[in-house]
Amino acid sequence: MATTQQPDYFVPAPSWWPFKGAVALFGIGLGAALLVNSVPFSWVPLAIGIAILLWMLFGWFGDVIRESEGGVYSKRVDISFRWGMGWFIFSEVMFFAAFFGTLYYLRSISVPELGNMEHKILWPDFKAMWPMSVAPNGTEPYQVMGPWGLPAWNTLILLTSGVTLTWAHWGMMENKRGQLKLGLLLTVLLGALFLGLQVYEYAHAWGDLGLTMASGVYGASFYMMTGFHGMHVFIGALMLAVMYFRSVKGHFTAEHHFAFEAAAWYWHFVDVVWLILFVFVYWL
């Protein structure tokens, strides 16, 4: 492996990691399809696929880290990485935009339409209001999730995590390694706390409020949007945990730290999405 930065675009050697990733995804897809159809031992291909995927992720990203620390990436590669991460976050923006568009359709178009006189024959007791307090058939009463309490605390936690991450970034830029590591560790812990409180919130909503995935379109949209956001928090916390362990090993300098920046971009994106979720899913 080269130890000095290359003047041109770095071209990696042929690799088996993409093929291994494809095998992993095939195993996960096959296992999941068999599992939902209650096929015996369907967990076997699912578990094997997940294991191969984890192996692929650790191995492939390990190669990238070694190449980066070996100095083989030029400025052109750095720009390419930045464009790639930028487009990836843009795809995530569109992903959540689809959910927010769906929520707008439900609240502003579908529910009012179902409440007009033409649909009274189907659901005579249906009330065109949001958030809905009962399912359209009226047989599954539930309570809606309010904005204050756990959702408000989780909002404060994520906002605080953005501050600690920015503080860690300042520490790196000023060569304060202790501040960098402590800021990253605090951010990961705050992310874990957010996920723990979200699990508790789900248990409370499901068991005490009667709010389930079957609770009409409100329950389905609530769990779909907050659940996918929770998955992104988990992924972001994993990314930052990797950044923490890399910082412990002495990686990153003020001039060479794109991996840290990419994880930080992703985390701040997750923060912004939660603020919008808090307003339109919990509050309004």
Rank of each mutant, 00 (worst) to 15 (best):
G86Y: 14
M1A: 12
V39L: 02
H268Y: 15
K181L: 12
M173N: 14
F100S: 11
A13W: 15
M239G: 14
A168N: 00
G171L: 01
M145Q: 06
P45E: 06
F194G: 00
G59Y: 01
F278H: 02
L240A: 01
A24G: 01
A262W: 00
M225W: 00
F90W: 11
W148M: 05
K176M: 12
H256D: 12
M173V: 05
A22E: 07
D125I: 06
P147A: 14
T226Y: 00
V217W: 03
D78Y: 15
H204D: 04
P131L: 00
G138C: 08
L238R: 08
V188G: 02
E174R: 10
S42Q: 07
L158P: 03
L114C: 04
L186F: 10
W267F: 00
A22S: 14
R82C: 10
L195K: 15
W16Q: 09
L195Q: 05
S80G: 12
V281G: 09
W206N: 04
E255L: 06
T166E: 11
M213S: 04
L182H: 04
S15C: 04
Q179Y: 10
H251C: 15
K75S: 14
N154W: 00
D125R: 13
R177W: 03
I157G: 09
M129N: 03
V93L: 13
Q6V: 08
H232E: 01
S110D: 05
V39W: 15
V44W: 10
M117L: 10
F245P: 00
A32T: 05
F88H: 05
P131I: 00
